[in-house]
Design a binder for these strands. Structure first.
Lengths: 354, 354
DNA sequence: CTGAAAGCGCTTACAG
DNA sequence: CTGAAAGCGCTTACAG
């Protein structure tokens, strides 16, 4: 019981070299050592099953090969982002520590006390994480601590979050291109009155604003048309009521683009309650291609983002900042493409059938 | 830039005490120090914003306040389990490091190369995690390494996994009670021919076997009836085909209990293809109450597990093993209750209406 | 090509 | 009640 794991000293002794030689050789800094010596040391290490104590080397070199990831597994999009981060980190032999605050049930309307979040950040800094990847609401909530992190040369990458003045590297979907695909599709189907439904407003949802603006511009430039917007108000607003209002009246839109698949589901519900059939009376397009999108009925036409790629890019960016000490360059705004997936929720505008 | 964080030495100097005094007082080992001294030290620490370098103290004491969690955020059940673990760890000022292998798309049929899993375990051991919480397939895959972990006094808790000979503490749902609730419900509805559908067989799915056995026994003891079982064969078997076969023929069951909500969704699909209406022709009960269960149509009657509680219990158990060095006692098999949630997928047996 | 020595930032007997 | 000293398991100038 309580078997001690082998020490570097043990390896050195077995290989008949000094501690420092063993240390250097096993770190790969073996340029100036005899081939034979290197072999002996490596064999001894293998044989004893020695593993570097990362706490020690981390303390001395600052390199813990660990990063902090504040992203909740909120839906399949974010789970895939996490998977991308994990995969990329594994390649680089880094370990991501993923933490989040609060309950999934209340996730989208996140506003945990800032204090708690700082406690989490500190818990990770105490373990000397070398950088952070943040979910928009966290990025938002803690952005005023970024300068402090930077002073400690702990870089930060945010996903899907932009501020007027850039304060970190960011990775996001190419909203301009993605929304243009949607606009083109709906216009090809001869829709003229097109609506946009977004989730409750929150300061962290800069992606929603961006999505709406780009979409509006695309509609305008492609058809000269104007968007009918239903931005669900501040938290607590009843989404269904707002959407039903948008879909009522003689000038109701014949097609609706939802900010995400979650809102698309609300649109389905509102349509059902109003007796509107999708897609015959109303075309619906979502965004994200979440796990449930293809099993909605009718199956949802939506923009398939590439969350794994987004996660991988974020990790890559962060690791570059960390390893190359490229902490100096200007902040980057990486964009990942997305594709339109045509399913059964879009059809030619009803007007054109009359 | 690159501001150095304060050292304990700085605190000691500011408070005018020795390094060792400062160290002890700030660890809470202040019994023998003057009140005034303690106050001075704590104030100095506060003022400088000193934080203990956990790498250093971890290296010396073995206490890193970190545990390893190998659980993928596979569905809302596991996400909630994770949330429970995180919450409990936060309370105890522990940090869980969550890692997993492979892609979510292929999660349920997990069989990643063992090597990769060991790499992950080692990455965590290199950072001196004090214990592990494992998802069944991982627990299964790496169980032969448990003795080694035990030798290093790294306790393990498994969720939803049992072996003939217990090899670790476990936390699971009280299957006996939960399945009895289902049996009672269906029998109250006068169902006589009751089926059970389980996911593809895999050695790690001891919970599925347990669920089936307990359910069969409950049916028998409550009604003297016999279960019609459709155990979906080994990986690769087409679930839909198997379920349709179960639901065909003159003696088809009038009610089906699915091993999880995922399988319940398959039963819905099979029923639709066979022209059977749920619940009029066929009652369906799921297990887990996953996020999509209430929005299935009809809304699924299912057993609501308590994943947050399961996660919290697992964390509590692990922390007890860690802190009390209770590594000696016999392995525990903690059971968490579950409740039947009645929705719209169950109705009286059709026979009784004739 | 290799080793003895100092040091990383703490903790902990031990001595007063 | 408090401090000087040794030590945790490594890394890294520095010296040969």
């Amino acid at each position: 019981m309580a078997e001690r794991s082998p020490r570097l000293k043990d390896v050195a002794e077995l290989a008949n070299v000094s501690l420092s030689a063993a240390s250097r050789i096993l770190r790969g800094d073996d340029g100036r050592f005899g081939e034979e010596t290197c072999r002996r040391v490596r064999e001894a290490s293998q044989k004893l099953g020695w593993r570097r104590n990362l706490l020690v080397s981390g303390m001395q070199t600052g390199k813990t090969s660990t990063i902090g990831v504040m992203i909740p597994p909120y839906d399949s999009f974010w789970v895939s982002v996490l998977t991308g981060i994990h995969a990329k980190c594994a390649e680089a032999d880094y370990l991501p520590i993923t933490v989040w605050l609060g309950d999934l049930d209340h996730m989208p309307l996140f506003d945990a006390p800032e204090e708690e979040g700082l406690r989490l950040i500190n818990r990770m800094l105490d373990r000397r994480v070398e950088g952070f990847i943040l979910w928009p609401p966290f990025g938002m909530a803690y952005s005023h601590h970024f300068p402090e992190l930077r002073d400690h040369t702990v870089p930060v990458v945010m996903i899907d979050h932009h501020t007027d003045e850039p304060i970190s590297d960011t990775v996001a979907t190419n909203e301009e291109h993605a929304t243009r695909l949607v606009a083109r599709h709906l216009i090809d189907l001869r829709h003229k009155r097109i609506g946009f439904v977004s989730s409750p407003e929150a300061p962290s949802k800069t992606w929603a604003v961006e999505r709406q603006n780009h979409f509006a511009r695309a509609i305008e430039s492609l058809s000269g048309g104007r968007l009918v917007v239903a931005r669900v108000g501040p938290e607590g607003t009843d989404e269904l009521v707002v959407v039903k209002k948008l879909l009522s009246g003689p000038d109701r839109p014949t097609a609706v683009f939802a900010a995400t698949d979650h809102e698309a589901a609300s649109v389905y519900r509102a349509a059902a309650e109003l007796g509107l059939r999708v897609p015959n009376d109303l075309s619906v397009v979502g965004f994200a291609d979440l796990d449930f999108a293809s099993s909605m009925s009718p199956a949802l036409t939506t923009v398939r983002q590439r969350p794994r790629e987004i996660g991988a890019r974020a990790a890559t960016l962060l690791l570059e900042r960390i390893t190359k000490q490229a902490s100096e360059g200007p902040y980057l705004d990486a964009r990942v493409e997305a594709d339109l997936v045509l399913r059964d929720s879009t059809a030619p505008a009803p007007d054109t059938l009359r």
